[in-house]
Amino acid sequence: MGKLDAKCDYESLRNARISDNKARMQSLGIRRCAGELNLITSPSRSRKDYTNTPERTKKARKIEATPLRRSDRVKKPSDVEANSAPPLRRSDRLKGKSPDPVELTPQGGREVVVSEVERRQLLSRRCDSKGRGSVYDPVLGICCHFCRQKKLCGEEDCRRCGDRDSDQPCIGKTECSSCHSANGVLCRACLKVRYGEDMEEVRMKKDWTCPHCIEEKGLNKFWICNSSLCLKKRKMAPTGIAIYQAREQGYKSVAHLLMAKLKENALQ
């Protein structure tokens, strides 16, 4: 009974407090002020009336028909002529202009200046020489480690390149007795110009070792493979057409020129 009496006392006190608060709010005019504020903030007209006003009516969109974009292949010949393409860009060689000269690597302490046309002719002669072959063949051609030309060799007795027999070896490309890999494959021209060896001498040596293996095994001090792939691994710039500089300075090949330079750098 004690808990029930306590609950009844709480309810009576709560109701009395609510009545006092209502009376105080009525005396202060709070309810009246709240009603006036509601009138001020409430819209003066309903949403339906507002949405139907002339200002809110949607305007009809005017859709104009534009011509379709069509490719030159679908267009009629007359349309193509009307929208002619801009003139094609042509090189200075086709326009008859002489290109600016290009400075190559210094040879013997002097600058050798050749034109762009002469430089391209040098490169074309280098890649189309008899020692490298002139016919590109992605199936029968064996890629050279230096020039990376996958061409048929120019050897007269090569049954692989002459008779197109894939089961026969190419006598115009070397094969290393140590690695038997693509690093030891060199054509006649690269073998002579870049490393100073003759193809006939290499064929007679059954234990011939490629320049790449000579460098890796340290068989010849300061000797390095001067292909662009191997030079980049050494963080060295490719030599380009350096055979002219080597011959002018009396070296047998580009590899002998680089070996002499490495010796000089080691002594300094």
Rank of each mutant, 00 (worst) to 15 (best):
R126M: 10
E118L: 13
N15K: 15
C187E: 04
L140R: 14
A23V: 03
D72K: 15
K97A: 07
R234V: 01
D165I: 14
R61N: 14
N220A: 14
E81S: 12
D128K: 15
D207L: 02
R148I: 07
K232W: 04
E81W: 06
C170F: 04
Q249C: 09
K48D: 09
L104V: 04
K173E: 03
E216Y: 00
V114L: 14
G240F: 10
S129E: 05
E116G: 12
M1N: 08
T41G: 15
D20C: 11
R203E: 03
R47Y: 05
L231A: 00
G29H: 05
C179A: 10
D198L: 07
L152S: 03
Q268R: 13
R132K: 10
A60G: 08
H212A: 00
D207H: 09
E155Q: 12
I241H: 14
P86H: 06
N38F: 03
R132Y: 00
C143G: 07
R93I: 06
P138Q: 06
R24N: 03
E197T: 01
K150S: 15
G109L: 00
L28V: 09
I241M: 15
S115R: 15
K235E: 06
S227V: 03
V202D: 04
I241Q: 15
R194I: 05
R17E: 09
E215P: 00
N183F: 08
G2D: 13
P99G: 14
N226R: 01
A6I: 05
S71T: 05
K3S: 12
L191P: 03
E11S: 13
D72R: 15
H212E: 00
K3H: 09
P87D: 05
D198A: 11
I30Y: 08
L219D: 11
